[in-house]
Simulated scan of single mutants.
Amino acid sequence: MNHPPVVEWTEADQPRSARWRSENGAPPPRRIVITDDRTKADDAYRLACEGTALLWRGDFHNARQLLTAMARRIDRRPRKTPPADVTQAFHLHRAAQNHRARILGMLLVPLDSAFAVPLHRAPDVREACIRAYGPGEPDCGEAATEGPDPTTTLVSLRELLALIGANEWRKKGVEIPALGGDRVHPHYGVFSPARGEYVDLVAEAPLPTEELAFDIGTGTGVLASVLARRGVHRIVATDQDPRALACARENTARLGVAGQVEVIAADLFPAGRAPLIVCNPPWVPAKPTSPVEHAVYDPGNRMLHGFLNGLAEHLTPDGEGWLILSDLAEHLGLRPHTELLDAFAQAGLTVLGRLDVTPRHPRARDTSDPLHVARAAELTSLWRLGLADRTASAPR
């Protein structure tokens, strides 16, 4: 049995312990001090920078204000001139993001066994926590007899606020023009299709079949739903993340296409072959710093190469594989353009066609962004791939 991580501290001269939870994979803090409404932002910021976590016992709204004040102190730090090398700028930007997350993650709040926050003026976060964490952990009580308080869990306030925000997005949903304005409702930890241009590509590309399609790494199920709305009779949508599987099933049912879409757990491909196989892998070959970043960062292009190398085995002779991929990694110097073309050839694939779209998100126009040059040049493409031996005259 895997016991939950334990965090320990001293309060009122008494040793205390509780369970520790971090969706970002942060380890339990080694040092904790008790803080409340009397704590000054400068002191909190200094302690957090030194690696000391702050367990909040005051008013919940004041804790949010303290977190904002700590963020302002991080943002006030003198900014270095961005390096001319865009790859170095990317790594420095990621390091700054990680530093910010680590410092702000040091402000902790308690959760009781029912996922309530026992602080004055705390909001009701039970629904957000249950949707993100699940209804509970049956083994927690048994694990707690060996040390931690079974009724208390410590979490980062920053993470808790993210759970609240994610739950609001889940309730509100994201409008998808390619679905006629219907909404997709992302779950916590599942990549949101807020950047709709890649969805539009799948809605516009000429369909090679209406019989069967595979959607690899379905996430919210948005691409499978678009294919179903376009008239594809059967779609097998795969993912290996339990949250994504639940999210895709909920969305396809909500959109009325569950009868066409089968959502199954698989690492990349389901069994068999299909005349259309669609995949939108993570776009940036860099190491994720938390589990929720796996939809964006893919070390060594694992999913990209896994999809390409397995495509020939799962594609029907005249079928098409649709790879939806941004070239941001190329503009960041993280993946040469020739690497992608070489990967096609090594996998026995040829390019049958390509559709491109420029990004519409605000960051592409934000000149203050340290990665603005790369973002402004970004292009998202739908590569139509076929088996190399199916034709000798495919357009390139």
Results as ranks from 00 to 15, higher is better:
203 A>C: 10
330 E>M: 15
266 A>Y: 11
161 L>I: 09
352 L>T: 08
154 L>H: 00
285 P>H: 04
260 Q>A: 12
389 D>M: 12
108 L>D: 11
82 P>D: 13
61 H>I: 00
151 T>N: 12
42 D>E: 14
396 R>I: 12
74 I>R: 15
60 F>M: 04
324 I>L: 08
18 A>W: 05
291 P>K: 01
281 P>I: 03
272 G>I: 06
380 T>C: 10
222 V>N: 07
203 A>W: 08
58 G>H: 02
212 L>F: 05
10 T>P: 02
362 P>H: 03
255 L>H: 14
195 R>A: 11
158 R>K: 13
316 T>R: 09
223 L>Y: 09
318 D>E: 13
46 R>W: 04
256 G>Q: 07
315 L>M: 11
264 I>K: 10
159 E>I: 11
107 L>N: 13
339 E>K: 02
321 G>F: 01
380 T>K: 09
3 H>M: 01
259 G>W: 08
362 P>Y: 10
97 Q>Y: 01
171 K>L: 11
293 E>C: 03
392 A>C: 06
132 A>H: 13
259 G>A: 11
355 L>P: 02
106 M>K: 04
190 V>A: 10
49 C>I: 10
281 P>D: 02
34 I>Q: 02
258 A>W: 05
309 N>R: 14
263 V>C: 05
344 F>K: 05
19 R>T: 13
30 R>L: 07
280 N>A: 08
10 T>F: 15
221 G>T: 05
218 T>W: 08
255 L>V: 04
209 T>S: 12
230 R>W: 03
396 R>P: 02
15 P>D: 10
358 T>V: 08
37 D>M: 02
278 V>Y: 04
255 L>C: 09
75 D>S: 14
279 C>R: 11
361 H>Y: 15
225 S>D: 04
347 A>D: 11
71 A>N: 13
314 H>K: 05
222 V>K: 11
134 G>V: 13
371 L>T: 06
115 F>G: 01
300 G>M: 08
69 A>H: 12
148 P>D: 14
132 A>F: 02
45 Y>D: 10
137 E>H: 14
7 V>E: 01
238 T>F: 01
335 R>A: 15
19 R>N: 13
263 V>I: 09
